[in-house]
Write a protein that binds this DNA or RNA. Structure first.
Lengths: 125, 125
DNA sequence: CGTCTATGTTGACATACGTCGAACCAGGGC
DNA sequence: GCCCTGGTTCGACGTATGTCAACATAGACG
């Protein structure tokens, strides 16, 4: 077990504020703790309604959307609120109240970190 | 390198065999059907044990691993088999029996498609 | 203050999910 | 043939999850 000096290879081409959550999935096996944290993010996108809500916010003008603009996904309004809360807890969205309406926006760094685990992980095969 | 035509912005820099499952999440809202299919893939990576198993296979030599090599993730062996089946059903892994052992390997195209939904989706913000 | 609209929270319910032990297949040696 | 090892499937159990109706909260506007 030679000592590891190559810590920075975890982040090959990190964007601005990308949090280096975990190395690409092909780099090395995730530890139990890494898997726990990362799985929570993938899990947040693992529900059809949440994924639609997320894409609605992400594709909205300025990456920001009022709840009233994205509430038409086929479930009741409390359910929408529930899913938005889950996405917020996973760190994928942030919310801000401005006057009457609440606006949600995406957290680009987290999304980029997740993407890098998969794209940078495309193996030699 | 085959798709040089720049007609759909759905695939900006697709690798070889990437199935264009869905556009980047910032491109436009996903339809209900798109969300259903895509969420199933994210859901497969939304469990810590499955994520570890997947990274164990992906990081193994040649992107291929025998079940016996990756069974040490803290759960019983039937549970490992159960999770590998889920990953296979989600299209993320394929399995092949060679003699006594069963080998699992990653499906690079699916992984790349998921990554592109997130990386290509990094918004202007 | 009162009321109306926009969101979030609570409680309850049915279903899905992760986990295990035990039983069951598949090959390889003996 | 028999048994042994590697893997999967089955049945059951407890917990988590998605969903809704009902209620609660936050501003805006009179």
């Amino acid at each position: 077990m030679s000592n590891i000096e190559a810590l920075p290879l975890v982040e090959p081409q990190v964007a601005e504020g990308v949090v280096p959550c975990c190395p690409p999935l092909t780099e090395r096996p995730l530890t139990a703790e890494e898997a726990e944290r990362t799985a929570a993010m993938f899990k947040a996108l693992g529900d059809p309604v949440r994924l639609r809500l997320f894409s609605l916010v992400a594709s909205h003008e300025g990456g920001e959307a009022c709840v009233c603009d994205i509430s038409d996904v086929g479930v009741s309004q409390p359910t929408v609120s529930h899913h938005l809360k889950k996405l917020k807890e996973a760190g994928l969205l942030t919310s801000e109240r401005r006057g009457t309406w609440v606006y949600y926006r995406v957290e680009p760094s987290v999304m980029a970190a997740m993407g890098q685990m998969l794209t940078a992980a495309t193996p030699v095969a």
